[in-house]
Design a protein around this nucleic acid. Structure first.
Length: 274
DNA sequence: ACAGGAACCTGATAGC
DNA sequence: TGCTATCAGGTTCCTG
């Protein structure tokens, strides 16, 4: 479900709620979502720990605990994190619940159950391959024009595949890939290494602009994304192509097309994107 | 080394 | 109404 702007919005809304709270017991309704360690160790290690801070790396959330451990959560397609005040109704797809000593709880809910949770010593986070192998993320100092150019020049695959490749760039998903390519005027199926320097410049600033705006607008609620307090995002109002199949392009009026690129539903304006 | 496709899951919606 | 097909914001594993 969520991409970098959605995960960042969840982080911001959740951090102010949970920092300093202490976890008592954990209710685990779907154990297979916990990838490490064993069920017993997971519950035992987290019991009595206090959340010091909440960080994000690309689409991963990292809950730093006062016992030198880190709870790592990846929401995949439909994961949600709900801060639930005492006595409030629970999400029907609630899978794992962390109960705090103040009576409130943090609920991990997930319709399609593809999400993943880990509890790792802070010194062993490098054992999570998807986390350690992440490329630089948009808006960071490492994500420079030169970096993107060097990446693009050596790739023979489609440009959209590159944007979705988390080892190349961390944090972009299907919505923001389509929106970035739309803003840059580049067709998603273009072979990466055929892009001109000017096009790479446009793409570099388009990615940063779209991700920045996405965060400012609190993410995109296309279906069921919500922040930790249950609020919807606002970026869906700004979408130029994603989810707009058959609707007129906001620039030229041509019907927005939907095809499949890199195995994903892909939206673009056939007139504006070459 | 890299690209493409299937697999993992469940539910919502569109079309007949 | 009810059935079927398609689609879904992601990642990983396998194959070629």
């Amino acid at each position: 479900m969520p991409e970098m702007p959605e995960v960042e919005t969840i982080r911001r809304s959740l951090a102010v709620r949970i920092q300093g709270l202490t976890i008592k017991e954990t209710t685990i309704k779907l154990a297979r979502l916990i990838k490490w360690p064993t069920l017993h160790e997971f519950s035992a290690s987290i019991y009595g720990s206090t959340i010091i801070r909440l960080e994000r790396r690309a689409k991963y959330l990292l809950f730093y605990l006062d016992n030198e451990k880190v709870l790592v959560v990846h929401l995949r397609m439909t994961g949600r994190l709900n801060y639930v005040s005492e006595g409030k109704p629970k999400d029907p797809y609630s899978r794992i619940i962390f109960h705090f000593t103040n009576g409130d709880s943090l609920e991990y809910a997930d319709t399609r159950t593809l999400g993943t949770l880990y509890l790792m010593p802070a010194t062993e986070l490098n054992r999570i391959y998807g986390l350690i192998s992440l490329g630089p993320e948009p808006l960071s100092d490492e994500f420079t024009f030169d970096y993107l150019l060097s990446l693009v020049l050596k790739r023979k695959g489609k440009i959209k595949s590159l944007l979705l490749n988390q080892k190349a760039i961390g944090g972009i998903g299907n919505i923001y890939a389509d929106e970035s390519l739309s803003l840059a005027g580049i067709h998603p199926a273009r072979v990466a290494c055929t892009l001109t320097v000017i096009e790479v410049e446009k793409l570099h600033s388009a990615i940063n602009e779209v991700i920045k705006k996405g965060i400012e607008e609190g993410g995109t609620t296309f279906r069921d994304y919500r922040d930790a307090d249950g609020n919807k995002g606002r970026f869906q109002q700004e979408l130029t192509v994603y989810g707009r199949k058959g609707d007129p392009c906001k620039t030229c009026g041509t019907d927005v097309m939907r095809t499949e690129v890199a195995g994903r539903g892909t939206h673009f304006c056939p007139n504006c994107q070459k």
